[in-house]
C-alpha cells in the first residue's frame, strides 16, 4: 500500500472514530488497475477500501448535494483533489452545502492519469487553510500550458469559424446528460433540460436541440465552472466540453477579474449587484 493511501485511510479512520464524520466519500479500486470508483465508507473498519493514486478521477464534491445521501448522513467527509475543493467552495457560496456539515480531506495529484505521478494527502485540515493553499499554491498551476494553448487557439478563430467548429462537435451529442450529472455545479432540482411544461429545449439529438442544450449548460456555468474536467471525461462521444467552459471562464476573468472557487467570502459575478456595475447593455 502506498504511503499516500495509508495517510488517507488514517485520516478517514480518525474522522469516523471521532464521530466527526458519519460518511467518508472516497475512491476505491475500479475494474482495472487504471480505474477507481467512488466508495462510501461508514465504518472505521472499512477504511481499507480507500485508495489514493493517480487514477482518482471523479470529483466527489458532486455527491455532497445528493438528496438520498444528505437524508441519510449528517456529517459527510469527502476526499477532494485541488479542483474539487474549488467545487466545495462554490457549493458553500451558493448555500448548497453548509460549511459545518462537510469535512474536506484535501489531496494533491500532480499529474492525473500518469502512473508515476506523486500523490499526497494535504496537511491542511480546515477549509480556511485549504482555501489559502489553493490561492497560494494551486491557482498558478490550475490551467496547464496545454489547456491554455487550446483555449487561445479557439480564441483566435473568427466567430464564424468557432460556430462551424461547435456545430461539428455538438452534432455528436446524444443527450445522455452525463455532462450534467458529472458536474458538481449542476445540482438544480429542475434542470431546464427536463422542464417539459412547456418544453424549453428540444430533447431530440438534432442540431437545434443539441445546440440549445450545450449552450444553455455552458452559460449556466459561466463564473461557476471550477475546471475539474468531469463533464468532458464523462462524455461518451468525446465532445471537448472543457474547451467551451475554459473559454467562458477566461471571458469572466477578463471582464470581472473573477475566478470561481477560490474564496468562500468572494462575490459571484452573476449573483451579485454593485451600484457601479456597467448598465450600458440594458436596452
Amino acid at each position: 500500500m502506498s504511503t499516500a493511501t495509508e495517510a488517507l485511510q488514517a485520516r478517514a479512520r480518525a474522522l469516523l472514530e471521532s464521530g466527526e464524520a458519519d460518511l467518508v466519500i472516497g475512491y476505491g479500486q475500479g475494474t482495472n488497475p487504471r480505474t477507481t470508483t467512488p466508495v462510501f465508507v461508514t465504518k472505521a473498519d472499512d477504511v481499507g477500501q480507500l485508495v489514493l493514486n493517480p487514477f482518482c478521477r471523479n470529483n466527489l464534491a458532486n455527491w455532497l448535494t445528493r438528496k438520498d445521501l444528505r437524508g441519510r448522513f449528517k456529517r459527510i467527509a469527502v476526499v477532494a483533489k485541488e479542483p474539487d475543493i474549488r467545487a466545495i467552495i462554490v457549493l458553500i457560496q451558493e448555500e448548497q452545502v453548509s460549511r459545518e456539515s462537510v469535512r474536506v480531506i484535501g489531496v494533491r495529484i500532480d499529474r492525473p492519469g500518469d502512473p508515476e505521478s506523486p500523490c499526497q494527502v494535504l496537511p491542511q485540515t480546515t477549509l480556511d487553510e485549504l482555501q489559502k493553499h489553493l490561492r497560494e499554491s494551486f491557482q498558478a498551476r490550475d490551467l496547464t500550458p496545454e489547456q491554455l494553448r487550446e483555449v487561445e487557439e479557439l480564441e483566435k478563430k473568427t466567430p464564424a469559424e468557432r460556430w462551424a467548429f461547435w456545430r461539428q462537435q455538438l452534432d455528436k451529442c446524444i443527450r445522455c446528460h452525463a455532462c450534467r450529472q458529472a458536474c458538481p455545479m449542476c445540482y438544480c432540482d429542475q434542470c431546464i433540460a427536463t422542464l417539459n411544461q412547456p418544453q424549453w429545449l428540444d430533447t431530440s439529438a438534432h442540431p437545434q436541440g443539441n445546440m440549445a442544450w450545450n449552450i444553455t449548460r455552458a452559460f449556466h456555468l459561466a463564473g461557476r465552472c471550477i475546471n475539474c474536467g468531469e463533464c468532458e471525461r464523462a462524455c461518451p462521444v468525446d465532445i471537448p466540453l472543457m474547451l467551451l467552459n475554459r473559454f467562458i471562464a477566461r471571458q469572466v476573468k477578463a471582464h470581472f477579474g473573477f475566478l470561481a472557487g477560490y474564496d468562500t467570502e468572494d462575490y459571484q459575478p452573476f449573483a451579485a449587484y454593485k451600484c457601479d456595475d456597467s448598465q450600458d447593455f440594458i436596452l
Binding site: F40, R66, A178, T203
Partner: peptide, 25 residues
C-alpha cells in the same frame, strides 16, 4: 447505487436498452 449519478451513458451505449419518449417539436 450511491455512486451512480444517474446519467444515460449506460443506457444510450447499451445495445439492448430500448426505452423511448415521443415528443412533438
Amino acid at each position: 447505487s450511491y455512486k451512480c449519478w444517474g446519467c444515460g451513458c449506460c443506457t444510450f451505449l447499451c445495445p439492448t436498452c430500448h426505452c423511448f419518449d415521443i415528443v412533438d417539436e
